[in-house]
Write a protein that binds this DNA or RNA. Structure first.
Lengths: 82, 82
DNA sequence: TTGTGACTTTAAGTCCGTC
DNA sequence: GGACGGACTTAAAGTCACA
């Protein structure tokens, strides 16, 4: 099991929640976004530090604003800086 | 001059606009975020495909939601998929 | 104060598989 | 349907000298 940054875990939870709300499997999302299915899994588990372009593509596939994939500023533990 | 993806250019513009609205130089932002000045420059010029953690750190430094750094879904030319 | 090219190191992202 | 691992290729992270 890989190391997980709390912020990435948040992002992963958000993506998973939205994906499931759309009734999509990881594999189906992977196909929409044209990203490897194991990578989608890794993102949702908070193990991957996804780059902007892929985040945007995921947001498009999920038909949601990119901002919805991120935790709100108030929710971030500012003490744990990176 | 490096190749620039339109979406990254949008992100760069947003970051630059917010940074300047705060009266910060690239160097000052770089120090806040603890990222190299030239890397910040590259992001603002749309030459870097920044990953989530750095985006969040930049958003924190600029005291703005991460979503504000991204273009809105409606603004994305959906035809040019990646 | 910022842009840019060249560069090394690290991690993103793919593809195979098993449980 | 999803978690997870290994091995791999590509791209991002990160730094520097100089314009």
């Amino acid at each position: 099991m890989k190391k997980k940054h709390p912020w990435l875990v948040d992002i992963g939870k958000n993506i998973r929640a939205i994906r499931e709300s759309k009734g999509l499997s990881q594999e189906e999302l992977a196909e929409l976004v044209e990203i490897d299915r194991t990578y989608i899994g890794g993102i949702e588990r908070g193990e991957r530090n996804v780059a902007s372009l892929n985040l945007i593509r995921i947001a498009i596939a999920l038909n949601t604003e990119v901002g919805n994939l991120f935790p709100r500023l108030d929710m971030l533990p500012l003490i744990s800086r990176y």
